[in-house]
């Protein structure tokens, strides 16, 4: 396991990488967005370790504004993230991408063979963020509407479920469809002995899912 970096918008962003130097197969993981990333990170990293043991290199990048990144989340848009993923793919000379959930919305820049696990529509992700805020406010006795939150975003940024979302990000999510990838392979959690870890309130680890994912990705990369 080692930390490489890619450069984007004058900053170095982290690339968590596992597997031998000079591996023939180099998979770029495109992480889920917002909270969903935290919930599956451990299982993804475990899958990377297993892949590394079989001689396949894999890399999990930080999106600008997320995880260790020094950039501000409220300065990011989906377009920025798509560009960042393209830069990350270039930095490791990736041979394929593997995207999870909202990662599928931004995985098409590098135009590589791709495998997608349960791709999520931008609108669903946005609804989830907005509702988390509305439900949380309601518990605190405050009534909030989606329109009011949107106006707040347009005036700078709005905090949704702990994430500062700009109007640009809001609008991007609202209209984002999964990019056309007719040759993208689609996976469901059941295909890899797993479950929808990204929806769990408490992050869980699923060793069987990590093994299933690694096996599926190794097969995918062998076929490409």
């Amino acid at each position: 396991m080692r930390h490489l970096t890619y450069s984007w918008a004058d900053r170095d962003e982290q690339l968590l990488t596992c597997g031998p130097d000079g591996a023939e197969q180099r998979i770029l993981f495109v992480p889920p967005l917002f909270d969903e990333m935290n919930r599956v990170r451990r299982t993804l990293v475990e899958a990377m370790r297993i892949l590394g043991d079989t001689g396949i290199s894999s890399t999990l990048p930080d999106l600008p504004g997320c995880n260790e990144s020094q950039a501000k989340l409220e300065d990011q848009s989906l377009e920025d993230w798509r560009d960042a993923i393209t830069a990350a793919a270039k930095a490791i000379d990736a041979t394929q991408t593997f995207s999870v959930r909202g990662g599928a919305l931004i995985d098409d820049g590098p135009a590589l063979p791709t495998i997608r696990l349960s791709p999520a529509k931008g609108k669903s992700l946005l609804n989830m963020l907005v509702r988390t805020r509305i439900v949380g406010d309601k518990e605190a006795g405050v009534t909030t509407t989606a329109e009011a939150l949107r106006t707040e975003a347009e005036n700078g940024s709005v905090e949704l479920a702990g994430h500062n979302i700009s109007a640009l990000m809001w609008n991007g999510l609202e209209t984002a469809e999964i990019p056309d990838g007719s040759d993208a392979a689609l996976l469901k959690p059941a295909d890899v002995d797993g479950s929808a870890l990204w929806l769990r309130a408490e992050p869980q680890h699923d060793p069987a899912m990590a093994a299933g994912l690694a096996e599926m990705l190794a097969k995918g990369s062998a076929a490409s």
């Binding site: 909270d35 989830m128 309130a201």
Partner: peptide
């Protein structure tokens, strides 16, 4: 509250 939001969206 986040799980409520996730459940509804799902």
């Amino acid at each position: 509250s986040m799980a409520v939001a996730g459940l509804l969206t799902e």
